[in-house]
Design a protein around this nucleic acid. Structure first.
Lengths: 261, 261
DNA sequence: CAGTGGTCTAGACCACTAG
DNA sequence: TAGTGGTCTAGACCACTGA
């Protein structure tokens, strides 16, 4: 048994020469592979044994790296089948970032209505958030989410969310209203399937605000109605911000659910 | 090497006879010890080696159990020193459950102003949430949290949170306004130090609401001002609910920060 | 059945803390 | 220096999946 261990040797593609545990280095390499698109969301990565051979470490070390990545929701383990790149396609992670749930608890699927999609120069605020250069192109999308009206049986769906999205122009070249309208399923699934941008985590800032005239009419409520303002910054691999989103949530029959641990 | 392994043998205090991995059983036993108060918050638990001997498993198995409990914020590991029961006393976990932060980012300490503390029969809603029998005693506490006014240098602190707390009467026998007023530090620290109730996790439901007349005057805002309503149910060891809390957050200069992973 | 992840062990050595 | 948690290895066997 070779019990001396240090940095991975020079024969391998090492990115972080400074010291860190082996499994952290492995994790870094795996993240780089994800970032480079070596394995696509939904696909299986090599088995632990294969990776151990590739990196010339023991299986337990690879295992620990994968454990952390699974905890970070980058990978999904399936016993007997393999380890897969996390995707927004699966039912369980379908609306992973949407915390709005009906008060009744029965989570009915939401309907999407796209209002606008335009390419323009990023405003100062958007450029700062998305780490773009001043004046660089950005895509703005505006949409409504509608929920079935539970007060009236068979009633018309009613708006519950008004969202404004800003995306960096370069990676989202070719994103149009038509492309989104013909898409079935969550936008984040479209983004990862068509634009190779996978949202990994996000940070949100919540406030209570009064509905303005325009927002109110789009949501079908009186101006001044209290709304939950949700500002979200989403990140892809490597802590790179790739979406700024501002949502206005109508919380009369819904609420934002959060678990504190 | 003994590579056969199954349920912990009868000589030990086993609670869950059904099958589960050894480390899960260990975890269950450790949680029971926490629940029974065998080790108090802030104190060290026995070393991994000691626990391995006690449970007659390898150190690695104990380690995995502790790993999960540390991830659950039940324990805190400190290299070279030991493993400690998580506490609300430490600086890092001081206001672990309070997600309200100033927009400016500089997190100044909040001031507390207690308004009321009374013992009474639990309402139907409170009894259901806290799993009390109808008519059982509950303690209700009302308080304000005030933040330094950043718009005016040296200005008076201004109210930002109006909280109503409901606690089960039995474990909180002896909780009075005076006891809380003379306490320095977070309430959750008082609860764990004086009443042996440690809050482990919580669930929150957020809504935007309009300030009523009473709430508005307490918060120093106009009636109808949009407020963030935060309904929190807190749990101690073993998923036992022990606090219902309803907060109204003023989000003009603050916001509720949330990380989505 | 072979291949995958999941559990468990035993033992070595590293990194940190404190007396 | 002794004791703690942290990392790493090698190897065994269990549990699950799918051909």
């Amino acid at each position: 048994m070779q019990d001396s261990w240090g940095t991975i040797d020079a024969a391998m593609p090492v990115a972080t020469p400074s010291f860190s545990p082996l499994y952290q280095q492995i994790k870094g390499l795996l993240v780089q592979s994800l970032q480079a698109g070596e394995w696509q969301p939904g696909q299986a990565i090599p088995s632990e044994t294969d990776l151990a051979l590739r990196f010339r470490v023991s299986q337990g070390t690879v295992r620990k790296a994968i454990d952390e990545m699974a905890a970070d929701n980058l990978l999904v383990r399936r016993q007997g089948k393999g380890t897969f790149v996390a995707s927004h396609a699966e039912q369980s992670t379908q609306y992973r970032f949407l915390r709005l749930v009906p008060d009744s608890g029965t989570r009915a699927p939401l309907q999407r209505r796209l209002l606008d999609c335009r390419r323009q120069r990023a405003s100062a605020e958007v450029a700062r958030a998305l780490e773009l250069r001043a004046g660089e192109a950005a895509v703005q999308v505006r949409r409504l989410l509608l929920a079935p009206d539970e007060t009236a049986a068979g009633g018309q769906p009613r708006p519950v969310v008004l969202d404004d999205l800003w995306l960096p122009g370069a990676p989202f070249k070719g994103l149009t209203l038509e492309r989104m309208e013909s898409w079935r399923g969550p936008l984040y699934r479209l983004f990862e399937a068509e634009f190779a941008v996978h949202m990994v985590r996000a940070e949100e800032k919540l406030r209570a605000v009064a509905a303005g005239a325009d927002d109110a009419s789009l949501l079908g409520v009186a101006p001044g109605t209290p709304l939950l303002s949700v500002e979200r910054l989403s990140y892809t691999y490597g802590d790179k911000p790739v979406e700024l989103r501002r949502g206005l949530y109508l919380t009369t029959a819904h609420h934002y659910r959060n678990a504190l641990m």
